[in-house]
Design a protein around this nucleic acid. Structure first.
Length: 375
DNA sequence: AAACCGGGGAC
DNA sequence: GTCCCAGGTTT
């Protein structure tokens, strides 16, 4: 899949796309330039990390929130990680926030990098983000390769399954070295608003006359869809102790929602049902079995593990929460237990929580309000 | 190279 | 339901 000789004149394509961008480009908050005509690298960096796998329309709200909380790299570095995660709450891929915080610490010690290689060395900064900051804030001639650019190039050259190497070489070859920042933004804007994944709007495309996929008559067939891993079904039990506004919370660790807080949660497997040898089951004798059968017993076992770990007894079933996280589908049964003196209760507003935990708390809130609604 | 990591928009 | 999003890190 060698990059074919361009079926077009690069200068003509650049001129057409940059002209379109000047007239039709999006007006976005992170494109604001200072009085010197330059952009604040910190603000560019935050925006680029925020927009990793996050659509622009959604990113705007988080951008304002995050910049208000941490206007400078010094402010970000000085904050506790928990405050950074709180500002990121709900945005997903929380390693991004943890890496932003770590990188800010490195920058206050060693200074802000001024070139591609320096940025690439920071945690959470890969080839895309390093190229974006280098070109947009420092004018370095580095071509970005994101989902938009990949799709535009796939169509422009009619390459159905572009590899990373091919796409990067094609992007490098097309980059306008005289205005790399503007060129990078122009290609991404085209991909986001015209050269969109399904039903591309070729009628409004400034370079369709140069596009090999357009010439085939079926540009929407490029690029071929990615093969994705199967979604895993995960089942769990969670316990609400205290109130929905001030529950007992635990801090999660590991790669999944690491650093965030949430209700105590215990997973259970489909195949553990009915195979227990009796250990830990004694407490279950008096429990009403709301979900009879193999699944019910697995769930009850997980609930018993939770109760034992936290030293609470008795529980009331509140309901089940469904939550999808791209690669897995969670189904969590939520129970309420009486407060135990040894367990500290924390206002939800003081901790970063995932959407999953907010859903579980909303369940408890609805349960509390139900008598009022019925009355 | 493939899996993993959130959450939501558009269809 | 599907696919994808201004990707990066880990295995």
């Amino acid at each position: 899949m060698k990059t074919p000789a361009p079926p077009f004149d690069a200068a003509t394509v650049r001129s057409a796309l940059l002209g379109w961008f000047a007239a039709q480009g999006r007006d976005l908050p992170w494109r604001l330039t200072g009085q010197d005509g330059r952009r604040d690298p910190y603000r560019v960096w935050v925006a680029e990390v925020l927009l990793q796998q996050t659509q622009v329309v959604r990113g705007r709200v988080y951008y304002e929130r995050f910049l208000t909380a941490f206007p400078t790299v010094q402010a970000l570095a000085a904050a506790p990680q928990e405050a950074v995660l709180k500002a990121w709450e709900g945005c997903g891929y929380y390693a991004r926030a943890r890496n932003l915080h770590r990188a800010a610490g490195a920058m206050t010690e060693r200074g802000i990098p001024t070139d591609y290689g320096g940025w690439l060395a920071l945690p959470g900064v890969g080839p895309y983000t390093a190229a974006a900051v280098a070109s947009l804030a420092f004018g370095e001639a580095k071509a970005v390769l994101d989902g938009n650019v990949r799709r535009v190039l796939s169509r422009l050259y009619a390459v159905s399954q572009p590899t990373d190497l091919w796409a990067q070489q094609a992007a490098d070859a097309l980059l306008d070295p005289d205005q790399p920042g503007g060129w990078n933004e122009a290609v991404m804007d085209l991909g986001a608003t015209v050269c969109i994944p399904k039903a591309p709007r070729c009628g409004g495309c400034p370079i369709s006359s140069h596009c090999l996929a357009f010439a085939t008559g079926e540009p929407g067939r490029y690029p071929a869809p990615k093969v994705r891993a199967a979604v895993k079904q995960v089942r769990g039990v969670a316990l609400l102790i205290g109130s929905a506004g001030t529950p007992y919370l635990e801090q999660r660790s590991g790669s999944l929602l690491g650093g965030l807080w949430g209700l105590p949660l215990e997973e259970w497997q489909e195949d553990e049902a009915g195979q227990a040898d009796g250990a830990g089951w004694a407490d279950e004798a008096g429990q009403p079995d709301r979900a009879a059968g193999p699944q019910g017993t697995g769930r009850q076992a997980a609930l018993a593990r939770l109760q034992k770990r936290l030293g609470v007894t008795g529980s009331e079933f509140l309901g089940t929460v469904q939550h999808t996280m791209t690669h897995r589908r969670l189904s969590v049964a939520v129970y309420r237990a009486a407060a135990a003196p040894a367990l500290p209760l924390t206002p939800v507003a003081e901790r970063p929580l995932s959407r999953l935990d907010h859903k579980m708390l909303a369940l408890a809130e609805a349960d509390r309000l139900q008598p009022l609604l019925l009355g």
